[in-house]
């Protein structure tokens, strides 16, 4: 069974590109366009990994991250934050909130996919 990834971003083009790449790599990808949708998707079926944009309207990525980490049932869900805010303080905040990794925009798709493969090797 394919490894499940939830991709959360409000920027349609970024979603489009990452979704394309992850499907190509053999992941089961679901997409959410904001924080609320992300939490709903996680409740329906917890993914193994969440690629989570930080700056989103309404509920932001930090909030989602915190909510996920607060629920012991989802302790195995790994979270990788995506952000366009490159400041160190944001990164530290994200890690403190329980994110597993942190990727700064603009990122290289190669780098993202490599990190994804390391954390969640797709089943061959």
């Amino acid at each position: 069974m394919a490894r499940s990834v939830l991709l959360v971003d409000d920027e349609p083009n970024i979603v489009l590109s990452l979704e394309f790449l992850m499907r190509q790599a053999g992941y089961a990808v679901r997409v959410a366009r904001d924080g609320d949708a992300a939490l709903k998707a996680i409740e329906e079926e917890p993914p193994e990994l969440v690629l989570l944009d930080v700056m989103m309207p309404k509920r932001d990525g930090f909030d989602v991250c915190q909510t996920v980490r607060a629920n012991p049932a989802w302790k195995d869900v790994r979270i990788v934050l995506l952000t366009a805010k490159g400041r160190d303080i944001e990164r530290e905040k994200g890690m403190a909130l329980g994110a597993d990794d942190y990727i700064t925009k603009p990122f290289s798709t190669r780098e993202v996919m490599q990190k994804l493969r390391q954390m969640l090797p797709p089943e061959s």
Partner: peptide
């Protein structure tokens, strides 16, 4: 500003890489 600039940059780079690698 940096966020606003990075977002389109990210898209451009991502799709360029996709097209390049595929």
């Amino acid at each position: 500003v940096s966020h606003e600039l990075r977002t389109p940059l990210t898209s451009i780079r991502s799709f360029s890489e996709i097209l390049h690698d595929n």
